[in-house]
Design a protein around this nucleic acid. Structure first.
Length: 219
DNA sequence: ATCCCGAGGG
DNA sequence: CCCTCTGGAT
């Protein structure tokens, strides 16, 4: 995608959503980290439903350790992959407590050293909590970038680097959220709603869905 | 490449 | 029924 089109692309998404933010609910950076770990291959709506009660009881790593793995499982058993997530969250909390004074580190290497935290999760924390100019390439951003031609790449890392070449630093934190919201509500995986897409004319997707499918004929 | 793994939507 | 959801570890 040409540089002028990239600018126009985000200008239009910004028009629709002036102040885009994470839809995950949290009260501090530790809770953000936990929420993002829980959100892997799960919807934010489902994560928020579970964390609402959990975060009322647990606000720090030490409180999570005190809660314990089995109790944590009870809180998050409605979320996919809950067994491994519970285990990771407890282990991660123990490391924060032991090696980081109970605080969430603000550098990528320390974050990705935590169990259950990969590059994507680390980038969300750096971006959302510390305002770092990074892209966390999740399933939405990966799909939207490859479809539209914003940044093509076979791996999330390749897309991340492509985005960094096209989007100026100060613009990235907003762009990150615009891409996710666009992917979640319009450029959806299964049936993209191109007929109401504000950037459809800038998009290189071959299989555009330009008309809203009508109701099935009654039998 | 495979496993983990529940809820919601089509 | 099938697919998808702010992935990570092996």
């Amino acid at each position: 995608m040409k540089k002028a089109d990239v600018f126009e692309f985000f200008r239009r998404l910004a028009e629709e959503n002036p102040d885009p933010q994470t839809e995950l609910e949290y009260g501090n950076v530790y809770q953000l980290l936990v929420a993002v770990v829980l959100s892997a291959q799960s919807t934010d709506v489902g994560v928020n439903k579970a964390t609402r009660a959990l975060f009322r009881e647990v606000k720090t790593p030490s409180e999570m350790i005190a809660l314990g793995e089995e109790e944590l499982k009870e809180h998050i058993k409605t979320i996919g992959l809950f067994n491994s997530k519970a285990k990771n969250v407890i282990a991660l909390s123990e490391i924060l407590e032991r090696e980081h004074g109970g605080e969430v580190p603000a550098d990528r290497d320390s974050l990705t050293a935590l169990p259950g935290v990969g590059r994507k999760t680390a980038n969300v924390v750096l971006n959302s909590a510390h305002g770092a100019e990074t892209f966390a390439v999740d399933t939405h951003i990966f799909r939207v970038c490859n479809r539209t031609g914003m940044a093509k790449g076979k791996t999330p890392l390749a897309v991340e680097l492509g985005l960094e070449k096209k989007v100026p630093g100060p613009f990235r934190v907003g762009a990150h959220h615009w891409l996710i919201l666009h992917g979640r509500y319009i450029c959806k995986a299964r049936m993209p709603e191109c007929w109401r897409c504000p950037v459809v004319d800038l998009c290189s997707f071959k299989a555009k869905v330009l008309e809203k499918p009508g109701r099935k004929a009654k039998s």
